[in-house]
Design a protein around this nucleic acid. Sequence first.
DNA 1: AGACAAGCCTGTACGC
DNA 2: TGCGTACAGGCTTGTC
Length: 287
Amino acid sequence: MPELPEVETVRRGLAARVVGRRIDHVAVGRERAVRRTSVRAVVDGLTGTTILAACRRGKYLLLPLDSGDTVMIHLRMSGQLLLAPSGAARPAHTHVVASLAPTTRRPAEELWFVDPRTFGEVVVFDPDRAAVEVPELVALGIDPLVDGLDVAMLTRLFADRRTRIKSLLLDQHVIAGIGNIYADEILHRARIHPDREARSLRRPQIAAVHAAMKGILEDSVRAGGSTLGDRQYVDLMGAGGSYQDDHRVYGRAGQRCLTCARGIVRRTIAGGRSTHHCPVCQRAATL
DNA sequence: AGACAAGCCTGTACGC
DNA sequence: TGCGTACAGGCTTGTC
């Protein structure tokens, strides 16, 4: 599933190959992909514009256009952005196609938004109206990489929060970009039990969460993100990442902890989210 | 056939 | 009263 490192990998692909290019044609094959506004709004909002930059906040991709509007793309669970030669055969569930005019350095190409489960979406909005058109963007918490999250900020975010630390890491209004995979990996590296109340963490533990968060997210970006067996996440060129090979708890239920050799436990918490932890490295004794 | 996985929103219930 | 929190349900569909 695309979380911060995967979205960042896609962003880098866009920055290298798509920024600066003009969109000369747009087709929307499935209305649900543009449900926030309309087919017309997305087609008209993109056609004839040039993409000025590729930015990211949490799991949201943001592409400012020379028209003054910005494109917001969220991949949710199964969304992909793929760059392909003009006229290439499109995979099933290709919902939006933006044709990119050729440049002196690149041929005519197409940017595809592919999304089998259609939870993802594409929105073209006026940044001056962001609070109305994309309120979740305005309500987004701190991005650990973009905003330079430090221990003091994390301490403030955890203060007085009675929620379990894992739920807090998943709360996009608090910290933006962490999903189920990285929440489990971060807590294992920090040696914190997922059920710990956030407000109960002491300074060394907050520092450990901070270090694990930065370290794991940066390591994963360097590895091109995590591509699981379902290959739901691939980068702009269709290539998988390799950070799944470095997972120490996620998807390893019943296997041995790579740190202490004890068996990894999988349970479900709030909303049926699967949670993996090592009962030795992440002792519950001080819950 | 039916359960399941995912991110995120909404609605409801409860406790501080 | 109101807020923070937990949890269920909904959205969707390929895979087990």
